[in-house]
């Protein structure tokens, strides 16, 4: 009996912590195939880190040491202008990556802040660990190349959108990319991301729902 309970406990522990990499493995397997051994090895390059709501991963002026993969929760990156107003650059949900690539690659201090909008479980990758990982698991080169391509496409899209789209078009694009975003992100943050006032966003949402 006692052995049974012990066995059960140790299985629970294993399952509990294997979940730490669940979304990452799922994402990786969509782009490349890894063997079980390679998955085991992949784990050893990521720092598992819990971040609570409102805690920082990065503060302006620090060097961005990590690329963060979101296993659970939500992060945002933002800048603060000279008037103290926050401008949200990106959100990252489960399965997304977050980090200041410029600071990460150049070692220059970051102009961004990154914090958690919900209690979050992250997997952090340092530059050193990334280099070692790519050397040990060359297949991951392809994964990161595809990831960077997608990121580039997203950034170009956001740039084009911010230059020429109306607020409503921008909002619709965002909701299309992430349907749960209006429920998970406070209205004023969505407005900040879209570059409009909360009042404009509120009006815009009312118009959209009236048309439905």
């Amino acid at each position: 009996m006692a052995t049974g309970i012990l066995l059960f406990q140790s299985i629970t522990v294993i399952l509990y912590y294997n979940n730490m990499y669940e979304v990452l493995f799922e994402n990786v397997s969509k782009k490349i195939g890894l063997t079980k051994e390679e998955e085991q090895l992949l784990q050893t390059f990521f720092i598992p880190k819990k971040l609570r709501k409102k805690q920082y991963l990065l503060q302006e002026g620090d060097v961005s040491k990590y690329l963060a993969f979101v296993e659970k929760g939500m992060l945002r990156s933002y800048t603060v202008d000279e008037k103290g107003i926050e401008h949200i650059a990106e959100f990252a949900f489960e399965g997304w990556w977050m980090g200041d690539q410029f600071s990460f690659l150049t070692g220059e201090p970051s102009k961004y802040n990154i914090d958690a909008l919900e209690d979050s479980e992250l997997l952090l990758l340092t530059k050193q660990a990334e280099d070692q990982m790519l050397e040990k698991i060359p297949k991951m080169e392809r994964f990161f190349r595809l990831l960077l391509q997608n990121h580039l496409i997203a950034i170009q899209g956001r740039l084009a959108s911010s230059l020429s789209n109306t607020a409503e078009e921008k909002y619709n694009q965002l909701v299309q990319a992430c349907p749960t975003i209006p429920q998970r992100v406070p209205q004023h943050m969505l407005a900040s991301y879209l570059g409009i006032t909360p009042e404009t966003l509120s009006r815009l949402r009312k118009n959209i729902s009236l048309r439905k």
């Binding site: 912590y17 730490m20 784990q43 050893t44 390059f45 720092i47 598992p48 952090l124 340092t126 660990a129």
Partner: peptide
């Protein structure tokens, strides 16, 4: 202790 924290101590 090492047994208990091993998985979450990676890279730390």
């Amino acid at each position: 202790i090492a047994e208990k924290i091993r998985q979450v101590a990676t890279g730390k």
